[in-house]
Computed example of a mutant assay.
Amino acid sequence: MDDYLARIGADRPQRPDLGALRVLHRAHLGTVPFENLGIHLGETVRLDDEGLLDKIVRRRRGGFCYELNGAFALLLRHLGYTVTMHAARTWGGDGYGIPFDHLALQVHLDGVPWLVDVGFGRFIHHPIRLDTTEPQPDPGGVFLVTPHDNPAGAPDLDITRTGGEHEYRLDARPYELPDFAPTCWYQQTSPQSHFTRSLTCSRLTDDDGRVTLSGNRLIRTTAAGRDERTLTDAGALEAYRAEFGIELSRLPVVAHPATPA
C-alpha cells in the first residue's frame, strides 16, 4: 500500500477523514488513467486483490470501473476507511443500462455516506454526499443526488449533473467484488459492449482539464477549449508513455470495431 500511495503521489494520511479522502480521490484521478487497453491487447481483466494491485501499482496501468474502484477500495480500507461497493446502471442517452454496468463506492464517515468514484471518466473530482438533495458544486460540475423508489427496499439514487445530464442510477444495496464478475466478463468480451468497440485512455490534468488518447487521436480539454491532434502510430505509443506512464510495445487493436449504420 505504500507503493500504491507512491503510485498516486499521495502521502499516507494521519487519520481517515474527509480531507484526506478528497486528496486521495483527486490524486488517483490525476495519475491512474481510465483505460480499456487491456481488452484490445488480449489481456484478461482480473477482479482479485492480487490482480488489481499487480496491474495498477506494479505495472503502473489504469483500468475501467471494476478495476479502478476495486483497487481504490483496497487502499481506503487499508487506511482505515469504511467502504462499501455498489452497483450502478449508467445512462445511455435513452435510458439506464444493464444492472452491474458500473461499480462505485460509498465511504461512510461519521454517519455520512459519501460517493467515491475514480472509475467513471469525466465525473466528480472529489467525493460528494449521498444524504442530501441539495446541489453540490465540484470542479467537474454541479451534481444532484435524487432518490428513486425501488420496490426491493431502500431507494436507488439518481446521480445527475446540473443541466439535466444523467450519469447513473446507484443501487443502495452493498455488494462484493465477485458480484460484478459476470458483467465485467460481458464488458470485455461482448461485441455489444462499448468497451470492446472503441479505445480510450484518459485522466484528469493538474488544471482540472483532461487528456485523452482515443486510438490515434490525442485530445486535450481545458477551461479555454478543446484541442485535438491525430498522431502517427509511433506518436501514439510515445503519448501513452509521456501522458499516462504506460509503456507499450505495440498499439492495441480494437476487438470489435463498430459497424457503420
Rank of each mutant, 00 (worst) to 15 (best):
R77P: 02
D54E: 15
N36E: 07
L251R: 14
L144A: 14
T205Y: 06
I98R: 15
L231I: 15
G141R: 02
K55W: 06
W185I: 02
G97M: 12
L21Q: 11
E243F: 12
T212R: 11
H194M: 04
G30R: 14
A234V: 06
D2I: 12
D233C: 00
G215P: 01
P135F: 07
I159R: 03
D101L: 02
G51L: 00
W185E: 06
R26V: 03
F72Y: 07
D117G: 04
L29K: 05
D158G: 00
T146P: 00
H194L: 11
V254T: 14
D48Y: 01
I39W: 03
V211M: 01
L103I: 08
C65P: 04
E167V: 11
L109G: 06
G235H: 13
R7M: 03
I159Y: 07
P252S: 01
C184V: 00
H166G: 01
P16I: 08
H125S: 15
A261E: 12
E243Y: 07
V254N: 02
I128F: 09
E238D: 15
P33V: 13
S249E: 14
P99Y: 00
A181V: 02
H125Y: 12
Y81V: 12
T183K: 13
I56R: 00
A172L: 11
E165G: 07
D101E: 15
L157I: 05
T44H: 01
R12Q: 13
R226I: 15
T162H: 10
T212V: 06
F143A: 03
R241M: 11
P260Q: 09
P13T: 08
P137I: 09
A261H: 04
H125L: 09
L199T: 09
E167A: 14
N150E: 11
L52Q: 02
A242T: 14
W185S: 04
V107K: 15
G9C: 10
T160V: 06
A255Y: 05
D206T: 11
C65F: 06
Q136Y: 08
V32W: 00
G121P: 01
I159E: 06
T232Q: 05
T133K: 00
F180I: 06
D233K: 15
C65L: 04
M85A: 12
T222S: 15
G62C: 08
A27Q: 12
Y96K: 09
L79R: 05
V253Q: 09
V116M: 08
Y66I: 00
R61A: 07
Y81R: 05
P151N: 13
I128A: 05
L157M: 07
G42E: 10
L76W: 08
V254E: 02
M85N: 01
N216D: 15
N216E: 02
R197C: 11
A236P: 04
T31W: 05
T212F: 04
I124N: 10
A258K: 14
E176A: 14
I219D: 12
V32D: 00
R210S: 12
D179N: 13
E247N: 10
R169P: 01
R173M: 11
G245Q: 10
G38I: 01
T84W: 05
T31D: 02
P13Y: 13
L24I: 04
G80L: 12
L75D: 11
